[in-house]
């Protein structure tokens, strides 16, 4: 019985309702008009592909941010959360946020259960991947692609 509980727990942590919800109904899914900055992110190991569209206004604020592509529940949900989180941030803030998130997800799991990684409850739903090392790249792909878009790099990959 104990086995089933612990098993369900980490699976439920990975596939929280919020993640499933975003995976099934991703926000800001599609192209942007007005000649946006684009970048493509590929995970060659699994074939996941994400395209990011980005508009930055004269005040250096992320005005538009959308994505499209194919991927697992984790990568789609993460991309969806990324668009809502980074929109309206200043370019440098968004860059820093994405870098922090990637490094946080790659750090070992914190001893304190449920410890917040980031300042957003929603983003912290991604924390579940820490129990699944092979899935961390699914969660970071869109954020990494966003950073490449900011740096005018057209294509990025999880394998370097």
């Amino acid at each position: 019985m104990k086995r089933d509980n612990s098993e369900n727990k980490s699976l439920k942590e990975l596939y929280r309702q919020l993640i499933i919800h975003h995976a099934k109904n991703p926000l800001n899914f599609g192209k942007l008009s007005n000649n946006p900055i684009r970048a493509e992110g590929i995970n060659p190991l699994c074939g996941d592909k994400i395209r990011i569209y980005l508009n930055i206004n004269e005040a250096d604020t992320i005005e538009g941010l959308t994505f499209e592509g194919t991927g697992c529940a984790i990568s789609i949900a993460s991309a969806s959360l990324m668009t809502t989180t980074l929109r309206n941030m200043k370019k440098y803030q968004a860059n820093q946020y994405a870098l922090n998130l990637i490094s946080n997800l790659n750090e070992p799991k914190s001893q304190e259960a449920g410890q917040l990684m980031m300042d957003s409850q929603e983003i912290n739903a991604l924390e579940g991947v820490k129990d699944f090392p092979s899935r961390i790249k699914c969660a970071t792909l869109s954020w990494q692609t966003f950073i490449s878009a900011l740096n005018n790099k057209k294509i990025t990959t999880t394998e370097k």
Partner: peptide, 21 residues
């Protein structure tokens, strides 16, 4: 349901399959 999600949930039950391309 994406194949990787199938793969992860099966792996969690001790079942190894291949997913992807």
């Amino acid at each position: 349901i994406h194949s990787h999600d199938i793969g992860t949930i099966l792996d969690h039950q001790g079942i190894a399959i291949r997913t992807g391309h």
